[in-house]
Computed example of a mutant assay.
Amino acid sequence: MSKILAFTNQKGGVGKTTSTANVGAGLARVGQRVLLVDLDPQANLTKGLGLLEAEQNVYGALLGEYRLKAYSLRENLALVAGSPALSGFEKVKGDELDREFLLKELLEPVRERCDYILLDCPPALGLVTLNAYACAQALYIPLEAQLYAADGLAKVLELVGRVQRRLNPELAVGGVFFTRHDKRKVLRRDTAEQLRAQHPGLVLDTVIRESIALGEAPHLGQDIFTYAPQSAGATDYQALVAEILTR
């Protein structure tokens, strides 16, 4: 039975999609069977991994228009495409009974065929994100170590508590990790140290350093290991994968 990990933050631009793609690719490289699910209406995970013409996507599957379709990207790695139509999911399904469990029901038949299912959540704490939290075993929260990072983390942790009580008692925070990190910048270094002190055991050891290659790879539809295997980004995500596998 696969383990479902959700990559989430209510703030955009923190490397959530980049992390979903590269953690997924890194897990696949070490022999894990991985399914990525693009739940962000921007569909950047889908485009950034080179899937440009997907006839079937997660939105249509959630609406029951067709069965869940996973597109193979490479060995051990497949992707359920995202769709801009996900922005209307709450309007369409908001009054439906058990609306928070639609994704869980959709993924249940494929869980035996995967080791990991990684969910790229939208940067909003709405119904799509609740569906992800309702079926995940662990959340991973990328953060930039800057002034308002603690505020974004607090909002996610608050929602996690409510989901644990009402929808998914198995949900846990797998870890928080810093992205676009530059320890030479005093504010980022101090913020990182402050959050480690506030949340002992929650902040992972691995940090993802600022890397040009991480920004370039999606433009070619590639993960960092394919695009620049010797880069700092590849080294950091390889370390993050190793840390996730031990948790």
Rank of each mutant, 00 (worst) to 15 (best):
Y66L: 02
R67T: 09
L68M: 03
K69R: 12
A70I: 01
A70M: 03
A70D: 06
L79E: 06
V80F: 02
G82A: 12
S83E: 04
S83T: 11
E90L: 12
K93I: 13
G94V: 08
E96W: 01
E96I: 10
L97W: 09
L97V: 15
D98E: 14
R99L: 05
R99M: 05
E100A: 08
L102T: 04
L102S: 01
L103D: 01
E105F: 03
L106H: 02
E108D: 13
P109C: 02
E112I: 09
R113Y: 10
R113S: 14
C114D: 03
C114G: 00
Y116A: 00
I117E: 00
I117N: 00
L118M: 11
L118D: 04
L119Q: 02
L119R: 03
D120P: 02
P122N: 02
P122W: 01
A124I: 04
A124T: 12
L125K: 11
G126P: 05
L127G: 12
T129Q: 08
L130K: 02
C135N: 06
A136P: 05
Q137P: 00
Y140E: 00
P142E: 10
Q146A: 10
Y148S: 05
A150L: 14
G152E: 11
K155M: 12
K155H: 13
V156F: 05
V156Q: 03
V156I: 10
L157P: 10
E158A: 15
L159R: 02
V160I: 15
G161W: 12
R162C: 07
R165C: 03
R165F: 06
R165H: 07
R165V: 07
R165K: 14
R166L: 13
L167R: 10
N168P: 11
E170D: 15
E170C: 10
L171G: 10
V173D: 05
G174N: 10
V176L: 02
F177Q: 02
F178D: 05
T179L: 05
K183N: 00
